[in-house]
Design a protein around this nucleic acid. Structure first.
Lengths: 213, 213, 213, 213
DNA sequence: GATGAATGAGTTTTCATTCAT
DNA sequence: GATGAATGAAAACTCATTCAT
């Protein structure tokens, strides 16, 4: 009877899909609550309730609160960094790569704003294990972006498009730092200034040079 | 009996001094513990013990744990910002002002590193009151520095020393952002790179311009 | 269709046999786990897993954890006591009955050691119901053995083989107590002393008398 | 001022006495509840409530439930064994030593009945640490009693008061085992038979010998 | 004014049991 | 009839805060 077989064969993928959906719902509820109230001020019960599951079900998916938090942060960090790397790589021209980096970083900031806030607020302290474990994972990703940016500076210098005013890695730090500074400015007072979508305004600061010769 | 009078008259100032010293000891113990273990992983008992006072005495000075944390952060933020403003103002020449800003910010970062870590790790979340209350206080100070920096850019532009490649406030954000980025880089891997004391390396990035005409 | 009928008629016995085998597997897994970790430290999930059944199936056989524990203990107690009674009854001579009692009790101790340990460790407490219910059942069996032993003393006394140094039931208690004491000694430090298989050594203590006339 | 001094000097002992009294009250409440319902069926909250303290206070005295249980058992075991040893040692004559041993053991059984029940019911399982740790401590005390008894048998044999029907340690096990068997008999059905205070009835079984020559 | 013992609300986590598939 | 995902009551333990001495 093919009907039965099909059902049986189809089962694992469906189970899998249900599991994945439920997991997402839990992570979403957790993120919502964490960003509202901070990691330590959210109870596992609240998360379960927020995701509309029983507390026991929550613990079936994440073996404890820390594990849930880790999953939340790392999975988003992955998405964030994949986006950054893709943005740099998908353009040919160096300037375009920078433009796309700034624009995409801004967009990813906007999308993941709650989690970015959470990261800057709660990473530290949470017992050394969590901190160093998590931080080093995330830092590794960040450093990878910086190195990718640095290689773009390097390649632009080789082609004589950019002056060698500093070593490429420092320039990567600078570009990343300026971008972050503007984005935080926006985060902290989003009503005061428009979301800085225009990468050229940011890039100009690096490219034009203040010195008036 | 004059003895008694003298004691009584002398009391307020001495009392005051003793109180102040004890308060400091408590805040220092708290900072030490907070930066070791994170705000939520330190108990009021530990702080009291660390400062060598009874728990009740601690509560005589700070009405609760949050109040203690607030005091710790705000008082250090004050000191930090006073230092930044003084650094900018104590020089005449615009470039010297920037140089001094970078050098002093680096020095203050070094001195207050534990607390800066704490700020970036624990500020947020702590229930709305704390977050917004504290953050806005600290942001106000930060914004004051940015405006002071902006006024230096403005004055340099008026004197035609700097090109008007962007509005002064944006340049202030950029300078501050680059500096912070380098300092964080140092914080996160202090062994890899030397402490960036040389302001010129940082300023060059802003001043020289990458574009190769 | 006779095939179906046959199947249906054949079913009960086979069903029964399958059920019985599965039940045994569950009880065996439970005993293994209980003796390793203690009643309260074993979960129904572990038992189900150990017996390689789904948790739901386990509950088809035993209506709850207590019921499973009860079944385990009572069924073994039955086996134990049947063994003891048979050992006494299968010999003719009184002394042989005692010898066989001691030897068999030792053997049953060895075989059922895990469960005996479990009984002495977990019987009590388990809420009044379990305690009194279970204990009284087991005590009833124990008392039956004592009475059987007592009747052997009685018969030996009537035949003038034994002196009437105490009432038969007290002597039964004494014989049982000495045997148990030696067996526990062996349980608790099995490496120190050999397993006391020789009933005569034990019986001598009762029979020879210490008093040196 | 001697008044003040005295108060200050007197303080530690009083504090100490209060602590000790409170500790006792907690242990008593715990014993009461444990023997009513079994270790695992009593919550720390119930113990706290039973002792009329807040849960936090209970945890000031015992760092966790296991610690409380350990303290309860070990402290009573000490008292029990000190009593047994004293009973044997305080008499001169060997037979008197045995009489006093039986009588005192019975008395200590009566006094510590709840705890003895608890010991036989809950020792095992409770995670290996507890079991082996506790058990070995208690076994050590038990073995000391057995050795003391054995030395009395030995000395009686040397003086030709007792026949050498078995090695002294085995006789010690036998005497202890008979006594325990009678006491358990009484424990399990206290209404059926009187509390066996008469040591001679028990000793006769060992001394007179059943064999009818 | 200092002290620190006592408090108890609140948190994480476990696990026996049910019931839709 | 078997399955195992989901449930949620209940337990151990912590720690900010109070207040009698």
């Amino acid at each position: 009877m093919p009907g039965i077989r099909m059902t049986e064969e189809a089962r694992p993928p469906r189970r899998e899909r249900v599991r994945e959906r439920q997991r997402r719902e839990m992570l979403e509820a957790a993120l919502r609550l964490f960003s509202e109230k901070g990691y330590h001020n959210v109870t596992m019960h609240e998360i379960a309730e927020g995701a509309e599951f029983a507390i026991g079900t929550l613990y079936k998916y994440f073996k404890n609160k820390e594990d849930l938090y880790r999953a939340l942060l790392l999975e988003t960090a992955d998405e964030f960094h994949a986006g950054i790397l893709k943005a740099i790589e998908e353009k040919e021209d160096e300037i375009d790569k920078f433009r796309n980096f700034v624009r995409t970083k801004a967009e990813l900031f906007r999308i993941h704003l709650p989690l970015i806030r959470l990261y800057f607020s709660e990473t530290y302290g949470e017992s050394f294990n969590l901190k160093s474990g998590l931080d080093s994972e995330i830092r590794r990703r960040h450093d990878e972006s910086l190195k990718t940016l640095a290689s773009v500076f390097e390649s632009g210098m080789k082609k004589r498009r950019f002056k060698r005013i500093a070593d490429p890695y420092s320039l990567a730090i600078a570009l990343d730092g300026i971008t972050t500074a503007f984005l935080f400015q926006w985060i902290e007072a989003p009503e005061c200034r428009p979301f800085p979508e225009d990468p050229d305004a940011i890039l100009d600061i690096l490219f034009k040079g203040l010195a008036d010769r």
